[in-house]
Design a protein around this nucleic acid. Structure first.
Lengths: 252, 252
DNA sequence: CGGCAAGTTGAGCCAGGTCAACTCCGGTGG
DNA sequence: CCACCGGAGTTGACCTGGCTCAACTTGCCG
């Protein structure tokens, strides 16, 4: 059957095109069913997946872009609890409103709302596809735990350094290149890391002043000194104060 | 076949005894295989599951107690990124050391290292059991995301209030009772919430002074004013300053 | 080219981190 | 049974990283 049965809307979707992702593991029939009964959707910055819609379409797959899970506090403060990107599948079946944030696009995002029935059937019978989504969910879980650890005790500069590495790890064709895409705005970055946009700005400037990285554009940066950035991310206190290290060297 | 095939070591394990948990969904044969090839282990406070051991036994199920995932920074600061309790199954298959913390017991913990082969087989063929672990992993993921959101922007008092509710939600027989078990030490609590033990102590004292809760013992507390605690947890700024609200009332 | 949101810079301040001293409590041994 | 010990928890005094607020610049989109 091969390609011939593939619907147009699926052909260019990352979930199908990338051999590591979910739809690439479906049989012709499964793909056909899922394709027919699912709904793609293109979102722009600020668009929200409403609760109402999520009741009937609780399984969301990301084709491209960055979707955020946001928690809103009563007084208006908000935080981004997680970032979902290409290939991530968000399963909200039977999740109480209580412990769930809103899903909000941070830019142009293409998603596919997977038909729950078909999704369930595939999960049960197709062990290849099952493995893919299991690993994806596990990644989401561990990523969230890492992130918790990061923002719990790290200082601003360290959080930012960790975030740069998180971006590098997640970007699609990451070799060991030193260019890193920053797929979110400064404001969103601040909310994700639990800090103020002003602080983010100051920290980037600090890292630039020290020659550790360059930020010629807002949506990408170049790491000039990977080991140093890594040490900062890992919480090596020696690296923190701009000047203290130099003083130490002088004394020695 | 019924009970007769059940090994002694499994009979009293939560994973089997609780109908909602993993082993309760296994067929007689599956249970027998898993039981034979798995290894139970009793840990005490401070015990760590070493990497070496986890390579061969990467799937860990919690029978009782609290296991923590800790991240250690280079300068000695540490954080607890996640808490695992009764019924949680931790799947570390193929997880790089990189993004994983150490698994450390916070008290007496009984675990079962599930035989990976059998675990995989069950995941593939037993859709009931599959559903249980899927939901468990999903809980872990969302819990971690919630937690990220909490510690990112909330103030100390708010974090503590949220934690009390997290404990209440997770405790086994929670009705709407006002007694909440705090299954971890103050120090661990502080590390989980990204604050100092001193601050935890001060915050509890503050909540007590305001008549919102009582802490007669270290490992349990009684909520006296649930709605108020909830408002604090949700970041209602009116609730924060001890005295400001009283002032407002006086003016009105 | 104008308008608006995003980002940056500067100055001041406060929540909570830090350090030190003290109390409490459970376990251990004489 | 009590004396002792060490880790956990608490309290107080002080200090600082990053939040706040305000003014400004930049960049993007129609």
């Amino acid at each position: 059957m091969g390609q011939s049965g593939v619907k147009d809307k699926c052909k260019n979707c990352a979930l199908y095109a990338d051999a590591d992702l979910f739809c690439a593991h479906l049989s012709g029939e499964e793909l056909c069913d899922l394709s027919n009964q699912s709904r793609t959707l293109s979102m722009k910055r600020g668009d929200t997946l409403e609760n109402e819609a999520l009741v009937h379409w609780p399984v969301v797959a990301i084709d491209s872009g960055v979707l955020s899970m946001q928690h809103l506090l009563q007084d208006g403060r908000k935080t981004i609890a997680a970032l979902f990107m290409r290939g991530d599948i968000i399963d909200l079946r039977n999740i109480s409103n209580r412990n769930r944030g809103a899903l909000i696009a941070l830019g142009k995002v293409d998603i596919c709302r997977l038909a729950p029935k078909v999704f369930e059937r595939v999960m049960e019978h197709n062990s290849g596809a099952q493995k893919v989504i299991w690993e994806n969910l596990r990644d989401q879980a561990f990523r969230a735990m890492d992130h918790s650890g990061d923002i719990a005790k790290k200082q601003a500069l360290e959080k930012l350094a960790s975030f740069v590495f998180e971006c590098r790890n997640r970007q699609v064709g990451y070799g060991e290149g030193d260019w890193v895409d920053i797929p979110v705005r400064r404001i969103d970055l601040a909310e994700y890391l639990g800090m103020q946009p002003e602080t983010v700005s100051r920290c980037f400037k600090d890292l630039e002043k020290r020659g550790i990285l360059e930020t010629p554009r807002l949506n990408a940066l170049k790491i000039l000194n990977v080991p140093m950035l890594r040490r900062i991310a890992n919480g090596d206190k020696d690296m923190l104060a701009s000047e203290s290290r130099i003083k130490v060297l002088k004394i020695a």
